[in-house]
Design a protein around this nucleic acid. Structure first.
Lengths: 343, 343
DNA sequence: TTGTATGCGTTATCAC
DNA sequence: GTGATAACGCATACAA
């Protein structure tokens, strides 16, 4: 496969390479007729400029990259839509970069920054305190979205207060009369939102004078993926089979909550009559599920918009508020019930 | 931000650039001590090689790209996992490329091929007859996965027979005693799997001597996204409000089926007692939903594995079967019931 | 308005 | 083993 280059197009048209380049890049000072000719031969020979060469030569490129760990997570789905819309709407190119589970997102960012001459970077999920240190090596503005790790004040961040919102949920469940609330938690050594949501659970119990009972906390196994229906199912099943007493299951994600419901149904239990179930995130699915899942809705679209706004403000060197915490919304569904004293 | 280059690393180490290059790329003929020194300074100065320059210079790169239109589609989620595992397991690099709704996936492929010196390409979804023509411009092997458009025999393809499987579903529903089966369909001008599933629906009815009733076909509006819960909800709601008679809703995707269930619940109906609901695809969600959704399960992981196997066989110039159709599996759930004659 | 020449950062081919 | 140096394909400063 002999690659056709700009030089050959130039030869074919009987012009210089710079003229072809000008045609491609919509430069102003070029004769309209020659431009037509060039564009036509390009189409005719299906010439495609080599992006590596372009990126290498260009000093800037007006592209924003969004790095996502777990691109298949439904939580990110509509955020991606919004991010893309907002970026392209500002006449910037949009690059969506998937980061594999075992990869370091900052390393990927560093690579991509050089490769594509990025103007800005968005980290969607993923980043933890550990990887955070290398962030300072980034040469362009970046915003960490949906995760509020313990970075400094100088790190741009858009998220909800996971601990607070988790606490809010547990307080709601307590107010419904549930005393024994089981938690479907992340892995025990989680250092990100899983930890924060667990902490919120614990704080809510303790602040209200209840005991925090480690027995009712179901930690995700090391080999499992945390935020999945499958995991919710497995954890709830294990909980049921342990014989421990509880009236309510609080799962740290909606997907896990749905898995938990299935485990209850399979055991012949009803939701919410026998057990209440609550989730976190406010996915569409929580609304469409039957019974609809009681959840805490993160304002995903607003957060996505704020993320891009913040990023561009940084790019344009405007004064910004670096840490933007959004308020989540308690969404009671049909999966939880109010429990009278005694029963 | 002054970018640090290979030349500066060379100067810093007091060696030539080629030595640094050799260190980076694990070349055999280099002294171990100098290699250590080079690697250390690289780490120390956080040098990251510029990928554009590498891609430009390299003649081959051992990377496979997977292009996905609608990367947030849950149908693709576990397929991506498998594709990634299979590719990296073969010591190839894996590039996941998101294609925007309005973009032409073949154009993107053409660009990427030159930019990254690809060894092979996988198209996951998306490709239609229209874009298919330009496929021949691709200089490397490619496989089209999960969509069986009407390409020629020479196009590598892995998919299920959508028309046949759709027909199978409708025949199952007919065998359950449903006579008036409404269809939640794709857009009317769909030229891909949406069209095929509709055709299977129609054929099943006609082959069994029933009338095909256009009144019972709910086409997705132009402005809506087809395969979503939201769309299923809207179409089912419209159907209900039209007052048309039916006993079963067949949605061409599981997500739409779940949306349809919600519309029925909201209208005070029960599933499956009042109306049966069926979907297509066999998502995990169909299993976890309550009631579990009757569906046709596509063997996603097997298809993903076959896709990579086929691609690598092509790369290695082995003889291959270019068109691989997989058998789907009818999965009866609790969302459909058997209807006795009369009522 | 157009063409020529230079360099972007890297790898690979040579000599040494 | 190692170091110059020539490409890779393109954009652009500068000359024409």
């Amino acid at each position: 496969m002999e690659q056709i280059t700009i030089r050959e197009i130039a030869k074919l048209c009987g012009v210089g390479v710079s003229t072809v380049s000008r045609a491609i890049n919509d430069h102003p000072d070029i004769n309209d007729a020659t431009k037509q000719l060039v564009m036509e031969t390009i189409r005719k020979y299906n010439y495609v400029p080599n992006n590596s060469a372009r990126n290498l030569k260009r000093s800037d490129s007006n592209t924003i990259a969004v790095l996502i760990k777990g691109i298949t997570n439904p939580f990110f789905a509509d955020m991606i839509q919004v991010l893309e819309r907002e970026v392209t709407g500002r006449k910037y190119s949009f690059v969506l970069q998937h980061v594999e589970e075992f990869e370091d997102e900052v390393d990927v960012a560093l690579l991509l920054e050089k490769e594509k001459r990025l103007k800005g970077i968005v980290f969607l999920g993923g980043i933890s305190n550990r990887t955070g240190e290398k962030l300072s090596l980034l040469g362009v503005p970046y915003v960490i979205s949906t995760v509020e790790a313990g970075f400094g004040e100088e790190t741009a961040m858009v998220a909800v207060d996971n601990e607070k919102e988790s606490r809010r949920m547990v307080e709601y469940l307590l107010s419904c009369g549930h005393e024994k609330i089981a938690l479907l938690a992340a892995k025990k050594d989680d250092a990100s939102i899983g930890m924060l949501r667990h902490r919120g659970y614990r704080t809510a119990l303790e602040k209200s004078g209840r005991d925090y009972d480690e027995e009712l906390v179901m930690w995700t196994r090391d080999e499992s993926l945390t935020y999945t229906m499958e995991n919710g199912y497995a954890l709830a099943k294990e909980l049921l089979e342990s014989g421990r007493e509880f009236t309510c299951i609080y799962a740290i994600s909606d997907s896990m909550a749905i898995g938990a419901c299935k485990a209850l149904f399979d055991a012949g239990k009803r939701v919410p009559e026998d057990y209440s179930v609550a989730g976190f995130d406010g996915l569409d699915l929580a609304k469409y599920y039957e019974p609809s899942i009681t959840t805490v809705r993160q304002p995903r679209k607003e957060m996505a918009e704020a993320t891009i706004r913040l990023l561009f403000d940084m790019i344009e060197q405007k004064p910004v508020r670096m840490r933007q915490l959004f308020e989540a919304q308690m969404v009671p569904g049909k999966s939880t019930r109010i429990r009278k004293k005694g029963k």
